[in-house]
Structure formats: C-alpha cells, structure tokens
Design a protein around this nucleic acid. Structure first.
Lengths: 275, 275
DNA sequence: TTTTTACTTTAGACTAAACTAAATTTTAAA
DNA sequence: TTTAAAATTTAGTTTAGTCTAAAGTAAAAA
C-alpha cells in the first residue's frame, strides 16, 4: 500500500518530469514544502518500493510502476476537481485544495462513478488533460503565453493552485477554451496587450500572469467551446518514433456533454459561470 | 486541531452514550478494533484536550465541547452517506465505509453544499437522524423489533455497517419507512413472522436480524413514505424537565423532497432502488 | 587550481498512533 | 473476608513521517 504522503511525492516527481525538469531533492522539497532531508528519506523509500529510480546527488525518475501510481492520482485529482466544479457547485479557484485531500481517500468505485456522472470528460476545470483509467493521456501541444509570438490564440490550460490568482483570471475572463489575440508585448518584462474574441476593449496583463497561461494558436474560428471534451482536431499528429508510449492515447470520440447542474456558489447570488 | 483518529474515538463514545452504555476502555477498544492500551492513551489525550472526562478504571464521558465535535462528525457521516446514496448512486449497503473516510477529510463547505443539494434532509439512508449544523437533533422514539409486541409497525432505522447484512434486508424489503405487521414471535430465540403492508406472503426473520431493526408503532395509515424528511407527527411530546438540551431540536418544517438522480449501480443492470 | 556556494546526505531526535507484556485495580465468587 | 478472574493501566516498543544540525559533494567563480 502506498501512503498518501508517498502519493504526493510521486505526483510531484511526475509534474517535474512533465515539465522536463530534473526531479532533484530540493525541487521536490520546494513543491511539497518539506525539508530537503525529508525528501532524501522518502525518495529512498520509494526506490526500495520500486516506484522510482534514485541516484544520490542526481535526483529521481519514476519507474513504470511509479508512473502508473502517479497517473492514477493525477486522474483522481482532475476528475475530482471537475466533479467539485460541475456537480458540487465549487468555483474553479476552489476545487484544487479539496481535490488534494479527496484524491487520497476516495475509493476506485467513487472515481469511476464520477467519471461516468461527468460523461467521461477529458479535461479538468483548469484545462488539464485527465488520464484515463489505464494511465493513457493525450497531451495538448501548447506554449506558454509569456513566450508566444503575436497572433491569435486559444487558452488551453492555466497552471496555478492559487485561488486569488485564479479568481483574478476569471474576472478577466481568461479561462481555458477562451480565444483572444495577442496584440503587443511591452519590452523589459512589460505587460501584454490582449483582445478577447468578441470583445471591444483590449486588456493588459503582467508577464508573471502570462507565465501561468498556456495557449495554442487558433487558426480561423477553430476554437473549441468547452474544455471538457476533446475535439478530433485537437489531436496532434502522432509522433513517429514512440510506438508504445502508454501516454499517447488512441483517439476516442466522446459524445454528449456532461450534465451540468446550475448551482449557485456559496456567497449566494453570484451565478455559476457557464463555460 | 482534532485528528481524524481522535474524531473516531469521540464518535465511538457518543455512540455508547446514545445507547446508554458506559464508555469503558474495553468497549471503545472493541468498537474501534484497537488494543485496550491504545484506548487508555487516547482517552487521556482527549481529556487533556478538554473533549471528555476520563476517570481511570471508570471510563469516559463527553464534555460539551467533545459532544459538539462528535455530533459534527456524525452529521458529516450521515450527510455523506445520503449524498453517496442519492447523488453518487451507491447502494445503501455501500455508503458506510466510504463515508467513514470522507467524513474526516471534506471541508465544511463541502458538507454544507451536500446539505443544500439534498435539500436539508433529516435522515440518512439507514434511517438515522442527521444532526443539524449546531448539533441539534430530534431523536426518534423507536423500539427494537426483537423486543416489540405483536402489532403494526414502521421501520425507523437499521443499525448495521455490514454490507452483506444490509443487502439481505434490502432483498427482504425491510428498509427504513417500510410498514409491516408483526404476526408471531416463536419462543426460544425463534424467528419472527412478518407481513409487509401491501404484501400477501408472510416472511420470517431470525431474532438476531430483528435486533438490528428499530421500529415505531404505526397507528392506522400514518406511515411516512420517505425516511428523508421529517413529518410533524414524528415529533415526540417535548419532555418537561430538560429545557436547554441542545439535542432536542425545535420542529422545523421542511419542504420539497431531495432531487433524486436515478443512476445505475456498479454491477450494471441492477436498477437503483426507489424508495 | 583553489575556493566558494549551492545542494544533498547523514545522524539524531520528535510526535502520533499503534502494539505487547507486565503490573495493578476492581469486581465477583467462594 | 479473602481470593481469583476480569478489566484497566503502565511501561516499553514500533512505524511513519517529519524536523534540525552538521558534514559531504558538485559545480561555478576567482
């Protein structure tokens, strides 16, 4: 049995591998807000359990077994986030912390129930892809807005667990699946000038904000309306080399949208954001 | 902060006090399936925290503070059970174990969301009363079927966490709110002969089974249809002596029934029981 | 090459929650 | 009233997860 603490470590290593960063002791420590020494300890335990390879002074990398365990938690986390948002009436900025707890506790039955209830969604409220039950996932091709050229874009995902930050983005209507034009980038870490599609007034956001937003170019009017279901044109061309990578899922067409309940949020009156 | 382990201890003591049993070290240990010595340890800690009075060799009793904490968990447990049953499509025999985990983990916001989603229910799927947010609860007047006289009854609650046992009761259609006549009681721990209202064939259940079922006499056709909402005639006459007992709730009339989703259960095909 | 800095590991200790075994207190029986 | 049995507490361990302080390693700067 993997403890929920261990699950958090695996998740952190997976996140870093996804970002193509080295999973060093200190970066894991920073992620989990524990002391470096605690990480060394745990990495050794996880290696003993066959969940990752760990070479002293060179950091860790997940084994197949560890990768599956991490993807299992990632799936739970993202399904639960969507569940909280769509069924329980949470705001998108509120889902992360609750999901962080539930993901370790809930039964597999619960998770599969949620999956069915939401009609087998492919993305969570932040635009992140939900791995399927076997750990497959189709990763979007996107770029960080902070590094993007001028042009037309669709927001793919937003990487942040900070409720205030997410609430700000919601206020600015910078949510996954929304389209906009990047008009200007001021020099010297200056702000970006954006124009949302179907909006007249341009808006300005700081570079730090842009660093958390990932986008893909929107050719013509191809922008998808919902972040929750894949469109076939989302599929990147299958790269040639990697035949059996469990994370490149075969395209599955999914149908009807999830049954969305229109609930109000806790500070009543504020209507539930329709996306 | 009260640990979830501590919460389990408080819940166990509350259950015993409800049953008018002494909360002795060994009985708590039996309930929680831990060693007696562990209980001694924990009771002392809980006393230090002001949650219960504990006299060595004579057992424990909850303080006001401890009682509130225990009722809070009880409320969570029962709301979550109903939530799993009504919204997540769990069978009534499946809800207990999942609720046992979730009750410690979920935020207050989640609990209040559930309460609202279920339209402020007063009973859980087993017929147990759900304390309100301030710890008030109106306890049903019921008797154990094993000790009941012959006559007409309504099932009030079923006390068991055993899924097989609960599945058996479901098969026999002995569920909270169902009405029946007790026709015979065979001597020497013999079986009971019942006739369910609107049924032709009598059924026989063992005395052990009857010990888990709590009933109240049904005068005429006064049987309530749903276990989830209080009927004003459920209210027992307010006892004279105890003016400020926080557990005797003032009667609150509650309206529309909860929105029930008709979901199928996991071993698909088996339709969700309508009550 | 040497030194400094940043990162990593080791060692030792702490807390919470559990356990077992032995000692003590209470209760019930002779 | 004494004694045996049952219940409870005490004492000493164990395990998981964390910490701090000190020491070691690697890489960058001088």
């Amino acid at each position: 049995m993997i403890s929920s603490t261990a699950e958090d470590y695996l998740k952190a290593v997976l996140r870093m591998e996804d970002m193509k960063e080295k999973a060093s002791t200190s970066s894991v420590a920073r992620h989990l807000e524990v002391a470096d020494a605690s990480v060394t300890d745990m990495l050794r335990k996880l290696q003993k359990a066959g969940l990752l390879e760990y070479k002293p002074y060179y950091g860790a990398s997940l084994t197949k077994k560890g990768r599956m365990a991490a993807l299992r938690i990632l799936r739970r986390h993202r399904l639960i986030e969507l569940f909280l948002n769509q069924i329980m009436g949470y705001g998108w900025e509120e889902v992360h912390n609750e999901a962080e707890k539930l993901e370790h506790v809930v039964s597999d039955f619960f998770v599969e129930r949620v999956d069915a209830l939401l009609n087998y969604p492919v993305k969570d409220p932040h635009g992140e892809v939900i791995p399927d039950a076997r750990g497959f996932r189709k990763l979007d091709e996107d770029v960080c807005l902070a590094e993007a050229e001028l042009g037309q874009y669709v927001i793919r995902r937003v990487i942040s667990a900070n409720p205030q930050f997410l609430a700000y983005l919601e206020k600015e209507d910078l949510l996954p699946a929304n389209a906009f034009a990047l008009l200007e980038k001021a020099p010297f870490q200056g702000p970006l000038k954006l124009l949302r599609t179907n909006s007249e007034v341009p808006q300005y956001i700081g570079l730090e904000v842009a660093k958390s937003i990932f986008v893909s170019p929107s050719q013509a009017a191809a922008a998808s309306n919902t972040p929750f279901h894949s469109q076939s044109h989302d599929l990147p061309p299958q790269p040639a080399g990697r035949k059996h990578d469990p994370e490149i899922a075969t395209a599955v067409s999914r149908t009807s949208p999830p049954e969305v309940r229109n609930l109000n949020k806790k500070k009543e009156g504020r209507p539930f954001k329709k996306r």
